[in-house]
Design a protein around this nucleic acid. Structure first.
Lengths: 147, 147
DNA sequence: CTTGACCTTCCCATCATTGGAAGGCCCACA
DNA sequence: TGTGGGCCTTCCAATGATGGGAAGGTCAAG
């Protein structure tokens, strides 16, 4: 089958299939004489695996790990579990971070009248001179979760 | 003061200060004869405002809104509140999404022995043939929260 | 044989941020 | 006065995963 059908069947866009091929996540498929990529049901199966892993927020790098574990019939389940639990930790760190943001904002919004007057604790907090939560900047390095 | 000192004082890197200038988020500062950017305490104040807003996960676009509201002494607090609450909603949608991922994974991990045997419900779930949660893909469009 | 749907490659944009190269400037110290 | 090191400047590139689109080739149905 062609790339469009493989995309349809797997839920991974043709664009992404080519991208995954370019970074070596999936093998280069056979080509027709005209250069069209040809996919088998097995390839579609792999692509669906990838899509499910992406839906769970795994990075492409982690998915490469999971794929090789999947294909390794002698794998130890603890290795898979480790990848999964590490990812859970990352997710939970991110969740906590977002919850802190949302919590702060909700608190500020609650004390804001929300009428036509200019007084607004939200703006005041952003503009305040106190040095609360200054330079120490840790970079969560966690950009690619939401697609 | 020079850009390095403004960066130090505001908690925004010199790189980012130049970037914010390039996209028009902050005004072009005065320059010395040699071309060095010169910042005032007021500029640093603005930069700190920006950094706090970034820490709360606001996008640059939202920060532009907040900055103009800040500088508008006749602003209505409801306008600020609206921006804040819209952002809270976005955060909460993202949180729910991550929680769903984490929940699924924790559930799968719980049923995974985690020993040296290959049997692993995590992998099996990723590889399963059932068509659960297929194509309908909504794109959360929410990449830039974690720095 | 044409039309339209598909395929190919290649480049660009996103979003916020960092890194680095190449070159100019400034100050303190010898 | 020279020089070294630490600033500053601009410009270009990369990140991660994805989408958009152009220019051109291919295929199948009419």
């Amino acid at each position: 089958m062609n790339i469009g059908q493989a995309a349809e069947a797997s839920g991974v866009s043709a664009k992404m299939i080519r991208y995954y091929e370019s970074i070596g996540l999936v093998p280069k498929p056979v080509r027709t004489e005209a250069g069209y990529r040809v996919y088998s049901d097995k390839d579609v199966h792999t692509l669906r695996f990838i899509r499910r892993a992406r839906d769970l927020g795994f990075s492409v790098e982690q998915i490469a790990d999971l794929l090789s574990l999947w294909q390794d019939r002698a794998r130890a389940s603890k290795d898979v579990k480790r990848v999964a639990l590490e990812h859970v930790e990352t997710l939970e760190r991110k969740i906590a971070e977002l919850q802190e943001m949302a919590g702060t904002l909700k608190h500020l919004a609650k004390t804001c009248h929300g009428d036509n007057r200019p007084d607004c604790p939200i703006i005041e907090s952003l503009a305040s001179d106190d040095a609360a939560s200054a330079p120490p900047r840790a970079a969560p390095k966690f950009g690619a979760l939401g697609r």
